[in-house]
């Protein structure tokens, strides 16, 4: 069975979806006191483009062996991924009412597959998702399945040696069905990602490792769509999309303020955030 093709939405529809997701994310995180808001807000457009325009997935049949695989290698982005999966129809939105509650499977990081439809891997410890996605891409090649595999990484995650181990092997194995997307929001937990370790020039590093590298504005749907299409057209090298993003994007007082890696909004901040998100 061929996995369901992605939906086709207009840019305006995609932007509306992104706005809705940001509203729900901020509200849910405030209620549940779950952090990493900045990291979630920076990758909303990337996830929306992937889940509505790119990935071959069937929310009604989430374990279709021929589906594309998306792994949230930056597992601390789980709060926004949960919102995406609910909106895309993998499970009812009401399930997120349990988000952050004791005994719930919806917490700061994705659990292993089998608990939340659409989750392909338990991540949270950085540097695991890309190698796992590489394994899935090699499996698809062996099994002669059409699945493409995607991993969304953070820039801080590129500190992990396992990312570069995977980069080297994916290039030698010519795994062109693998696409890594880096949510390059310029911050990691306690500092500027360019300063903590010498990431710069990030795209050139990937290129030097044998990857097809593109640099884009990670909040521009058209640019994301074009980059994903170019990655699909590449038939030799694995692809990386270095997506320049703003941590905390969409809420002015969260943008590029790394305190929102840890903080959750108080009632006044929540109201102010929602007011901004309603007036876009």
């Amino acid at each position: 069975m061929i996995a369901t093709a992605p939906t086709q939405r207009s840019p305006a529809q995609l932007a509306a979806t992104a706005l809705t997701l940001r509203q729900r994310l901020v509200s849910t995180s405030a209620a549940a006191k779950i952090p990493h808001l900045g990291s979630c807000l920076s990758c909303v457009e990337l996830l929306v483009q992937l889940y509505w325009q790119e990935l071959h997935l069937d929310p009604a049949n989430p374990e279709d062996p021929e589906r594309d695989r998306f792994l949230l290698s930056k597992g601390h982005g789980a709060p926004i991924l949960f919102q995406v999966l609910a909106e895309r129809g993998f499970f009812p939105l009401e399930r997120l009412e349990d988000f952050g509650k004791a005994g719930s499977v919806f917490h700061e990081h994705p659990p292993k597959p089998g608990y939340i439809p659409g989750i392909e891997a338990a991540t949270g410890s950085l540097g695991h998702g890309l190698p796992m996605a590489l394994g899935m891409a090699l499996a698809a090649r062996i099994q002669q399945r059409p699945s493409r595999c995607y991993a969304l990484l953070s820039d801080g995650e590129c500190n992990e040696g396992s990312i570069w181990e995977a980069a080297l092997l994916a290039a030698s194995q010519k795994v062109h069905t693998l696409t890594a997307i880096i949510d390059f929001n310029k911050w990691q937990a306690t500092g500027r990602s360019q300063e903590v370790m010498a990431l710069d020039p990030l795209a050139a590093k990937w290129e030097a490792f044998g990857w097809h590298a593109q640099e884009i504005d990670g909040h521009d749907f058209a640019a994301i769509g074009q980059a994903l299409a170019a990655a699909r057209a590449e038939n030799e090298r694995p692809s990386v999309i270095v997506a320049h993003t703003v941590k905390g994007k969409g809420v002015s007082f969260m943008e590029d303020d790394n305190n929102w890696h840890y903080r959750t909004p108080n009632p006044q901040e929540l109201a102010a955030a929602l007011a901004e998100l309603e007036t876009v």
Partner: peptide
């Protein structure tokens, strides 16, 4: 290669794909 961390996660990915 001499890259066991990647090899282990990669194997997990393969196993999850059957």
């Amino acid at each position: 290669g001499i890259a066991e961390a990647n090899m282990m996660s990669l194997a997990a990915g393969m196993a999850l794909s059957g």
